[in-house]
């Protein structure tokens, strides 16, 4: 028969369990709803500025600028939301797990962007970005509330539709995805999961 555990070891194990559960629960709802709404708003403005994809570097740079604005918004919103919950996001296992699932599709998008540009497919980048961003959200969202992977799947579906549609509609798909989906799902997440 296994020897019973000394009481202090049991207490340490309980505290470890509590910490792990709180970290996982924080990561579970860490996706920032209001942050998503702001990111969506910036994407709508960007779509208006960029216009239809026109095989110029300008078009890509305008969207890179939007990504450069959106990333800090997302990080700040996640941090604020986690801090408000009383359990800041740490470098612990849940954060690593999320990053491991979320980052690879984004890296794939970064690799494919110059490939599309150099092979004369720049106007097809909206489909590529929507598809891969959706993949990142869907896989990262596997560790989150159900609405997050659903949002990822919606992005992926829109990416497929964008590939099948005329390239000139690209900015509308970008506006619908990075603008519309972020805002709609952002409001749902904010209302249901505390911001």
């Amino acid at each position: 028969m296994a020897e019973p555990q000394p009481i202090h070891e049991h207490a340490i194990e309980s505290l470890r369990f509590i910490r792990d559960t709180m970290e996982r629960a924080t990561a579970f709802t860490a996706v920032p709803g209001w942050g998503g709404v702001v990111m969506g708003a910036t994407a709508l403005v960007t779509a208006a500025i960029s216009g239809p994809p026109d095989d110029t570097l300008r078009w890509v740079l305008v969207w890179f600028a939007d990504a450069a604005v959106a990333a800090p918004i997302a990080l700040a919103a996640m941090s604020i939301k986690a801090r408000r919950s009383g359990a800041p996001l740490s470098s612990a296992a849940p954060a690593y797990r999320f990053a491991l699932a979320y980052v690879p599709p984004l890296v794939a998008g970064m690799v494919l962007t110059p490939v599309f540009a150099m092979t004369g497919l720049m106007a097809r980048l909206p489909g590529c970005w929507l598809l891969l961003y959706g993949t990142a959200v869907a896989t990262g969202g596997a560790f989150s509330v159900r609405v997050v992977p659903i949002m990822g799947l919606c992005f992926m579906a829109l990416g497929v539709v964008a590939f099948a549609s005329p390239a000139a509609w690209g900015h509308w798909f970008m506006a619908a995805g990075f603008g519309g989906f972020h805002m709609v799902f952002g409001i749902i997440i904010a209302r249901r999961y505390g911001g």
Binding site: T21, M22, A25, F28, T29, V145, R146
Partner: peptide, 21 residues
């Protein structure tokens, strides 16, 4: 203990969310 710990850092969680978590 898991239920209470999860709710300590979330204002509210649905039944399905808690089940998954």
């Amino acid at each position: 203990l898991g239920i209470v710990s999860a709710l300590a850092v979330n204002p509210r969680l649905t039944f399905n969310d808690l089940k998954r978590l």
